[in-house]
Amino acid sequence: MKMLVAQKMLLLLCVGVSLAQDLIITERLIDIELRLKATEETLEELKRENEALRTSTKAASDKLESIQAENKVKKVAFSVGLLASGSQQIGPFDTRKTLVYQKIFTNTGNAYDSNTGIFTAPVNGVYFFRFYAHAQTSDQMAVSLHKNNQLQCSVYSMKPQNNANGSNGVVLSLQKGDEVYTQMWENSWVYDDGNSYTSFSGFLLFPM
């Protein structure tokens, strides 16, 4: 009888030890799960912070690029003379001829093309242009400034008794890609030399 009781007590003791071990293991598993969950939450928070930082950095970079592009666009100015060197009387021609100015004083923004004589607006804005033309004695001189295919203003001298100079200027509202150039009329002459009597200039007043 005593032996039976002892066996039962031993069995209960083993069961108790087993239950205690199971409880410890369960508690450890729960602790590990909580730690993993906390780690996952921390990682998610770090991901959110990283994404927010990335978005903020991109916005700052885009803003900087925008400011740099705007400042670059604002720097548009050119001034050119008809002849790069020497002296020459140009004309006459049977049709109107676009004057191609070869002597570059400045071409900030590279909007003026010395191969064609055409200024192309790099940005929407308001621009100022001025041009000069020189006529020698008894030569007809007539030059016009054009926006795309539309005449804007002109200078004219009908066979002066002495050398004559003409000048005109205009403020134009241009869209990006609009072209501005000067044309000499048919049966007309212009003269230029190292003094750059015949010239063409323009610059951006402000973008729009």
Rank of each mutant, 00 (worst) to 15 (best):
K2Q: 15
T95C: 04
S196K: 10
V123W: 00
V80M: 11
L172F: 02
T137G: 00
T57H: 15
I25Q: 15
K103P: 01
K147Y: 04
D31S: 15
M9Y: 14
L46C: 08
V171T: 12
Q102M: 06
F128Q: 15
S196W: 05
Q150A: 10
L34M: 06
A59D: 12
L23I: 03
T39M: 00
L53C: 04
V123M: 02
G117T: 12
A52F: 10
F78H: 09
M1S: 03
E40L: 03
M158G: 00
E40W: 09
M9R: 15
I67R: 02
V76R: 11
N165H: 06
G81K: 12
D113I: 02
H146S: 08
V155E: 02
S87N: 15
L12Y: 13
S18F: 10
F128E: 10
K97G: 01
Q89A: 04
K97I: 05
V170L: 05
T42M: 10
P160M: 03
L10I: 00
V171Q: 07
Q175R: 07
V155L: 04
E179C: 14
Y112H: 12
T95E: 10
F128I: 03
T55M: 05
K176S: 15
R48C: 07
L4F: 01
I90P: 09
T95M: 05
L83W: 07
T39H: 06
A133R: 01
V170W: 04
N148I: 09
L53H: 04
E41Q: 13
I32L: 11
T182D: 07
D192K: 03
S173K: 10
A133W: 02
A133G: 02
N149M: 05
T116N: 06
P122C: 13
E33T: 06
M208N: 14
S196Y: 11
E49A: 15
Y156L: 05
V180Q: 08
L43I: 09
N187R: 08
E41A: 11
A77D: 01
Q150P: 00
R28M: 01
A59Y: 00
M141W: 00
I25S: 15
T95S: 13
L4C: 09
E179H: 05
V5Q: 14
N107P: 11
A111K: 05
G202P: 11
L13A: 08
E179M: 04
T42S: 12
T95N: 13
D113F: 04
L82Q: 07
W189N: 08
H134P: 00
V126A: 04
E33Q: 11
E70H: 10
A121H: 08
T137N: 11
E186W: 07
S85E: 13
D113E: 07
L64G: 02
N107H: 13
S154Y: 14
K47E: 14
N110T: 14
S199D: 04
T120S: 09
T120V: 04
R130D: 10
S61Q: 13
E44M: 07
K103R: 14
L46Y: 09
T116A: 12
Q136C: 02
T98G: 07
